[in-house]
Amino acid sequence: MWPYYYPVRIGEVFACRYQVVGKLGFGMTATTWLARDLKHSRYVVLKIYLESRFLGYREPPEIAAYECLNAGPKDHPGRKAIRRLLGWFTIMGPTGKHYCLVHPPLWGSLSDWLETQKSCICTGCTNFPRVTAHMLAVILRQIFLALDYAKECDIVHTDISANNVMFEIQDNSVLEEIERAELEDPMPRKEIHGRFIYQSYLIPLPKNAAGPGLPLLYIYRAPEVCLGMRWGFEVDIWNVGCMIWNIFEGNSLFDGQDPGLQYRFSTRSHLAQMVWLLGPPSREFLMGGSPWSMKYFAPDGKGSLREVETSLKFWEGEGEDRDLFIRFMKKMLQWDPKDRQTARQLLEDEWLTNRLKRVRRPITIRPPAQSRTTHQTARVGRSPK
């Protein structure tokens, strides 16, 4: 597959404007590079796709999605909560045409930050990384603003998770350090078939999870997706509910592990866990166009929301605050998509607004000490790799 990657070289200038500074990473469909925008004297990230014929499409589907987002209402507060596309262009390589997307640099994802916090936990401590209730409220506000804006633009994200909630770099010193390090002590590289293969700099960026088609993370899939029904904006709301449990409780609401399949994921097990957590779906929902509903469901069943109500082991509050949070979760985790609240409605939820009122100063999420950057604004997008 290597011949289909564009052979980037450090120092190369693209589109008479973007000079490559260092490699940030690679994925199955693209490589990611830190570059300096010579026209505007700023740092950008270049995402250079494999040769387009090899990928099987005329242009990356992300371009059409970003063009819709860029054409959306400019006064909507959610516009600033979505990762921007600064531009795109094509490059002719040895095997054909490559598309290149230009983005602002991002430090990394929420899941990256949670991983860095593991090193902050002392030996023998039973706690593990999670966000506080205040942090959760600030992050969710950005997510719901972004989703409401995306809905205005007729875009369904399909893959909301901690991997795709990313943070801006508010201090460019770490990017300047990468550029200086490449000049003074270049990263290791090797030459294969006339190509230089560079080692990536360890500025944490999330792994590629983007792609067309179904929502990608199995355990975050909404019931209508599992049952082969038509799906739309409501799958993003279900995704957010599942993600909240991961980052707030430190585990998953559903894992889909099937004992009959040596604990591999199965839709049957996933749906059974939903029934155990939420109770059985309504007959109206099951008859709503699912080709698989009778494969998995009988007309009756039993269940309740008892797990959500009893497993808040890290919950900071008691009584009314706890009850408000449970009601907030229930607004997202509903079998029938029409019963889930919209992002705009969730922005007005009592638990969320109460928590945001208690935040007296900006929430700062700090990366590992050696990178010396601070990040305050979460953005929703797909990872740059």
Score class of each variant (00 low, 15 high):
383 S>F: 01
87 G>N: 04
204 P>F: 11
209 A>Y: 14
375 H>T: 15
101 L>Q: 09
306 R>K: 13
316 E>F: 04
175 L>Q: 06
5 Y>N: 14
81 A>T: 07
86 L>K: 13
149 Y>R: 08
178 I>L: 09
217 L>M: 09
366 R>D: 01
7 P>A: 12
55 L>E: 10
320 E>T: 10
76 H>V: 11
291 P>D: 05
219 I>K: 08
215 P>G: 07
354 N>P: 00
273 Q>M: 08
117 Q>V: 02
163 N>C: 07
282 S>Q: 09
122 C>H: 09
43 Y>S: 05
115 E>L: 13
255 D>Q: 08
379 R>P: 00
134 H>P: 02
367 P>I: 02
362 P>L: 03
128 F>E: 13
363 I>A: 04
320 E>P: 00
337 P>R: 06
74 K>D: 14
336 D>R: 13
247 I>P: 01
319 G>C: 12
124 G>M: 06
19 Q>I: 02
285 F>S: 02
98 H>Y: 07
354 N>F: 01
34 L>T: 04
264 R>S: 10
125 C>R: 07
278 L>K: 03
258 D>G: 05
159 D>G: 09
76 H>E: 11
379 R>S: 03
243 M>P: 00
281 P>A: 08
26 F>R: 12
333 L>Q: 08
327 R>G: 15
175 L>W: 06
383 S>C: 14
121 I>T: 12
174 V>T: 13
197 I>N: 11
97 K>I: 14
251 N>L: 00
186 P>Q: 09
335 W>H: 08
